[in-house]
């Protein structure tokens, strides 16, 4: 299927964590790669993020947490997205996330987790690959 519109991606910072360097860098990289980027800013509740994804008609939600709260907040967000009927959205996680947590996060619907040191090109590639399929 050929895509007529640009990929729309919500970059979000859930919880209280204020480390936004990664989120901002990735947001610019997505924009430079031709995507439509909506950056939420800090301190978003899971409800706010799900609502933004709905309002913005997002294809992708990219979540960044460096505070260690991912095991609480990521599952809440994927649950709320499903509740809103947004089953098709590609949800990605990033930040300081220990490898041993990744299987559990994938189980609740996080498509992939990109840790520190990830090349932005790799994430862009993953997004293009996995939104094309739909």
């Amino acid at each position: 299927m050929s895509r007529k519109r640009k990929i729309r991606i919500v970059v979000a910072k859930p919880g209280l964590d204020s480390h936004d360097r990664g989120a901002k860098v990735i947001a610019r990289a997505f924009r430079d790669a031709g995507m439509e980027v909506i950056y939420t800013g800090l301190w978003q509740t899971p409800e706010q993020i799900a609502e933004t994804a709905l309002q913005e008609d997002a294809d992708v939600v990219a979540l960044s947490i460096l505070s260690g709260a991912h095991m609480t907040l990521f599952p809440k967000i994927t649950e709320l997205l499903k509740k809103k009927g947004l089953n098709e959205i590609l949800v990605l996680g990033g930040g300081v996330i220990p490898e041993e947590d990744i299987p559990a996060l994938k189980k609740v619907g996080i498509a992939e987790v990109f840790g520190p040191d990830t090349h932005t090109g790799k994430i862009i590639e993953f997004i293009k690959e996995n939104t094309r399929k739909k």
């Binding site: 209280l16 964590d17 505070s67 709260a69 609480t72 907040l73």
Partner: peptide, 22 residues
Amino acid sequence: DYPTILGLDSDHPMSLGEVGKC
């Protein structure tokens, strides 16, 4: 931790999942 830094008590709804983490 983040709740303390942002002047929120540990039982504030926004503190969920962040208490004692950072």
